[in-house]
Amino acid sequence: MSRGGANRSGPARAALGIAGLLLFLCAWQAIGYYRLAGLSWPPLTDVIALLADPERWPLLGRALSATLAAMTAGYLLGIVLGLGAAVGAHMFPIAHPGTDRLAAVVNSIPSIALGPVFIVFLSRESTAAAIAAAHAAFIIYVAASSGLAAASRGHRDLLVVLGASRLSRLRHLDLPASLPSLSTGLKLAVPAALIGTIIGEWFGAPRGLGVLIVNAMQNFQIALLWSVVVLIASTSLALYSALSLLERACYARFA
């Protein structure tokens, strides 16, 4: 019933969204064209022209691939850490409150403060991935923890009656039942990991979109600065949408 309702308003909502986006882009163009916000707000067409200029592609491409590589490494590490901690806490309930508190404390440290610490402990190259991992790990931990507790009482009872060990209960029930919630976490962790990577790159990574932002800002290359921002936003949106599909599949199958 609710799904039918969502379907009916789906096209309308999409149309509204597109209209809003168009309005936003027009406003951007107008503000930039008439210099309503000063020199640091370029017209949209300048940004598009820069992004479409093949001479800029090697520079942007190198930075994008460096950022994606660091982000992917951090994201995967974050999954391992977050999921590992959640499964560990699930299997050994005595550790659960402690793990929760640790995760909350780690998460409450601003990444800006984490950066210098990672630089001291790790290297400039790996700081970006490390901050991305910290961001992703927390989200995955929270999503996986609530997912692992999602199985219904009836299903838990079934596994008790079948004489399942903890490990086999995890494998046959708790893990599959956690996938919807976990897939939401995987989706939300993508933008978080990307932001973490950019912040990490500000602490002196050799290359990456974050580095490009800092350089463009310092050299007052306004169009370049905005191009990088647009690139980051579209990358984030594209990955987020791809993982939304995964999330939908998980909900359809496992919930």
Binding site: S152, G154, H155, D157, L158, V161, L162, G163, H172, L173, P176, R253, F254, A255
Partner: peptide, 14 residues
Amino acid sequence: RLGVAFQDHALLPW
């Protein structure tokens, strides 16, 4: 060694 069919079937949906 125990076989049980509950009042609610408790089949795993996936």
